[in-house]
Every structure is written in structure tokens, then in C-alpha cells.
């Protein structure tokens, strides 16, 4: 069996998650089975070298100016070429913004089975087993995919292998003649710098959809003032609604934080949020829903209405 790992880089910088993907492939493949890593981009020789040191049997490098940015059409063309050559039983990559855009279409194009956001990959007789969560983390299901198949794997589910003797890097030329690129990327925009750096805070008070509206923010701001060194942050819906600026967002599309104390108020704990804060030393969660996934990562939980609990907490903090 061959597993083809599709690595991800942006502007010549390898995504750490790609090294986790090689580890996932290594763990899923039996001894003697091959793990090939595919690196695509423009001027990404160094990326390929880095990948080569983290456990694949071979790195295939496709370097072309056509691949300066990720576009579905150009990437698909390269990957279809690589699949034709390597004939992998499993194509494995990361469940990221690129993974979400790229692989579902590839499944439709090739007729290969495809599942996203997987953990616990396991090979069984002619199939690949995978586990994933549903309903905001309330349910977990085990799946079976016939081979050949495509899976994207959840970030943090596997740990990257330590650097080792580099695998050979094989440079492949891909002809782009006749490939129409139907989307055209003009560049990237990065969010403006914030006055408060939530990544450096010792204590984070984080609010979620449970605060209901912007007008309710003052009580949470008062709580922040009652705790030394605390800053206010929020989950995605809070930022989407414009209640807090983008720089205060915790989670996959925001920032990853590891404070000593993380107080989650009215946050249910979507996986995208959890992956941005589960490394905190102590997590205190307050939510009305006892089954909210946030309680799974919390050290201390309060199953109550934040609008009753937070004022009580403020007055308790003021007592001394």
C-alpha cells in the first residue's frame, strides 16, 4: 500500500500540520508500505527538504510558477498526475481551509471515496477506517471508506515525527499546457495589528454566542477589570457579529492561546474554538448546556446562566 500525503505551504512556508499528516500516514501504513509526500508550489525546494526530514519514504517536488498560489485547477492537475503515477490507496491531507477547498472536488473528479476532519485512521481489509465528530462534538461516528480513498485529518490528532535522516527528494516536471485556471488569486490580506495581544495574556476571559448581543458586553468587561492581567477575547460568532475586533478571536481562524487561566463564558466549544485554546493551563467553562463540548476540555465547570453567574463572580472577586 502507498499513502500519498499532500503537504501544504503558503508563500514558501510549510504548514506545521503537514508534518502531522506524514506522522498520520506513517502510523496508518504497515511496515514496508510506502509514504510519499507531495510538495507543490513555486520556489519551495526548502519546503521539500524540511518535509524529507520528517518521516516520508520519498518526497515528490513539483515546482512551477503556475503553483505560486493555491488554485483548485492547477493543484488538481498536479495531484491527478501524481495519483496516476504513484497509484496510492490513500491520499491524505489536512483539514484546513485549503483541504476544504481542494479534496471534495477531487473526490467528485476521480470517484474516490472522501471524508474530512478525521482522526484515528486504521487500515482494515480493503478499507480505511476513520473516526470523526458530528453535531458540534456531541456525537462521534466511525466510518469505513473503500480504497482508494481521500481523507483529510484534523489538526493536532497526530504529533509530527522528530527530524531524521532525510528521504530522497524527487523533482517532477508537470506540463500545464491546456490547463485552464478558472480562478485567479491576486494575493493575501492580513488583519491589522491589535492594541491588545491576547496571545501574551496570562488570563483570558472569552465570550461566545451566549452573550447574545453587543450591548451585553459591559458586564464581561467589568469582569476582566476585576482580574489582574486579564484580557477580553471571543469565539468566532462574537467576532463575526462585530461585537469584538478580529484580533480578539480565539480559534482556528483566529489565534491560538495558552494562558494560565481561560474563562469561557457562553461558548459551546466548537472544535475550531477548542483547537485554539485547549492548551490553556486551566479552563473554566460557564454554559447553560451541560452537554456543551467545552466542558470536555474544562477543568472547572459551571452549568448556569452567564448573566446570573458573572455578576455573582464580580461581587465575589470584589469581596477581598
Amino acid at each position: 500500500m502507498t499513502i500519498l500525503v499532500v503537504c501544504e505551504q503558503r508563500q514558501g512556508e510549510l504548514k506545521d500540520v503537514s508534518l502531522e499528516m506524514i506522522a498520520a500516514a506513517r502510523k496508518t501504513a504497515s511496515e514496508g508500505e510506502k509514504v510519499i509526500a507531495l510538495v507543490m508550489g513555486s520556489g519551495v525546494e526548502k519546503v521539500a527538504q524540511l518535509v524529507a526530514e520528517h518521516g516520508p519514504d520519498e518526497v515528490v517536488l513539483v515546482d512551477s510558477s503556475e503553483l505560486l498560489y493555491y488554485t483548485y485547477d492547477a493543484y488538481k492537475h498536479v495531484l491527478l498526475t501524481a495519483i496516476k503515477e504513484a497509484r496510492p490507496e490513500v491520499v491524505l491531507s489536512s483539514y484546513t481551509s485549503q483541504g476544504m477547498d481542494f479534496f471534495p472536488g477531487l473526490a467528485a473528479s476521480t470517484g474516490m471515496a472522501m471524508l474530512s476532519d478525521c482522526v484515528n485512521l486504521s487500515k482494515k481489509e480493503g478499507t480505511l477506517g476513520a473516526t470523526r465528530q458530528l453535531y458540534g462534538g456531541k456525537i462521534e461516528a466511525n466510518y469505513s471508506l473503500p480504497l482508494p480513498c481521500i481523507v483529510t485529518v484534523r489538526q493536532g490528532a497526530y504529533s509530527a515525527l522528530p527530524p531524521q535522516k532525510p528521504a530522497p527528494v524527487r523533482k517532477e516536471d508537470v506540463d500545464f499546457a491546456g490547463v485552464e485556471l478558472r480562478t485567479k488569486v491576486s494575493g493575501y490580506e492580513t488583519p491589522p495589528k491589535e492594541d491588545v495581544d491576547i496571545e501574551k495574556a496570562k488570563v483570558i476571559v472569552s465570550v461566545g454566542r451566549g452573550i447574545e448581543k453587543k450591548e451585553n458586553l459591559p458586564v464581561f468587561e467589568e469582569l476582566v477589570k476585576s482580574i489582574d492581567g486579564a484580557v477580553l477575547a471571543g469565539s468566532r460568532p462574537v467576532i463575526d457579529n462585530g461585537w469584538l475586533p478580529k484580533g480578539r478571536q480565539v480559534g482556528v481562524s483566529g489565534k491560538t492561546v495558552r494562558p494560565k487561566l481561560y474563562v469561557a463564558l457562553g461558548i459551546s466549544g466548537a472544535i475550531q474554538h477548542l483547537s485554539g485554546m485547549s492548551g490553556s493551563e486551566l479552563i473554566v467553562a460557564v454554559n447553560k448546556d451541560r452537554d456543551a463540548p467545552i466542558f470536555k476540555v474544562a477543568g472547572i465547570g459551571v452549568v448556569d446562566d452567564i448573566f446570573k453567574f458573572v455578576p455573582a463572580l464580580i461581587s465575589e472577586l470584589k469581596k477581598n
Binding site: 503558503r10 498560489y69 493555491y70 488554485t71 484546513t96 481551509s97 485549503q98 478558472r182 480562478t183 485567479k184 488569486v185 491576486s186 494575493g187 493575501y188 490580506e189 492580513t190 488583519p191 478580529k246 484580533g247 478571536q249 482556528v252 481562524s253 483566529g254 489565534k255
Partner: peptide
């Protein structure tokens, strides 16, 4: 994309 980065494209 991740970390608040936006990709601008035409389609």
C-alpha cells in the same frame, strides 16, 4: 484562511 488571513481571488 487560517489566522485571519484572507485570500483574494477572481472567479
Amino acid at each position: 484562511l487560517e489566522q485571519g488571513v484572507q485570500e483574494i481571488l477572481q472567479i
